[in-house]
Amino acid sequence: MGIFSRLTDIINSNLNSLLDRAEDPQKMIRLIIQEMEETLVEVRSSSARVIADKKEAQRRLERVRSESEEWESKARLALEKGREDLARAALAEKQSLAEEEAIIDQEFKALDDHLAQLSEEISQLQQKLNDAKAKQKSLVMRHKTVSSRMKAKRQLHRETLQDAFEKFEHYERRMDNMESEVEAMDLGREGKHQLADEIDSLAQDDSINAELERLKADMGGKKGSDKAE
């Protein structure tokens, strides 16, 4: 089942309305163009058949008219020869052909009218098809434009992010450098602190040793006194 079921549906269709309702306008316009082209082929084929029928009717009409003229000539000849009976019979044949001629003439006119109608429909359908193709080009151009804008925005977004990352890395490197400078300033100082701590430790050891000897002496003196008693 196509987008359009009859030729009049295509001719009376509103392309803008169809495209506005479509979820995928580009796909819809392709289907519409395909349907129109197929219908146009069918209408042109019908027109070709009508033209062939019209030519055949024209030949029959010319043949009947030619035979009618011949029977009239025969009727005249019969009258000239005094054969009224033959003249009457000839005129009867001519009358029969005149009736056939009238029928063929009506058929020819009907075919002519049908062909004119088909020609008008082909013209309208072709115009619709041209409009559809123009809209297809417009949709393609709009799609390309939107795609280009989206690509540009994405590129700008990526560049913005890249710039932010670069700034962050720059600040991170600055912090690393500052920390490195602080650590560099402490280099050498650590050895001095260790040396001073060791010397202070020696002094502290001497003080502890002196205190220890004092306690020993004191304790030794007390033990001597206890024995003397």
Rank of each mutant, 00 (worst) to 15 (best):
E172S: 11
V140T: 08
V182T: 07
A102N: 14
L86A: 14
A102Q: 10
D163V: 13
K135M: 07
D197Y: 11
Q127M: 12
A164F: 12
F165C: 13
L118R: 03
R174F: 06
H157F: 10
H157D: 11
L161S: 10
Y171W: 07
K128E: 00
D197L: 15
Q124C: 00
A203Q: 14
L118F: 00
R189P: 04
E179I: 09
M150G: 06
A184V: 05
E80H: 06
E183L: 13
N177C: 04
E166K: 15
K133R: 05
Q126K: 05
A134R: 03
I199M: 04
M178E: 10
L77R: 15
A184D: 06
K192S: 11
D205H: 05
H193C: 10
D205L: 12
D176A: 15
D206F: 13
S201P: 08
E121M: 03
R158W: 08
E101D: 02
S138V: 08
A184H: 12
N130E: 05
L125D: 01
A89R: 13
K94D: 00
K192D: 08
E172Q: 06
E100A: 09
A92C: 11
M141E: 13
E80M: 06
L195N: 01
I104E: 13
A203C: 08
K109D: 05
M175C: 07
V140F: 03
A152P: 05
A110E: 02
D205W: 04
K167D: 08
E84Q: 11
K81Y: 01
L195M: 06
F165Q: 06
E120K: 00
K94G: 04
K81D: 02
R83P: 04
F168I: 12
E93V: 03
E198R: 06
I122L: 00
S180H: 12
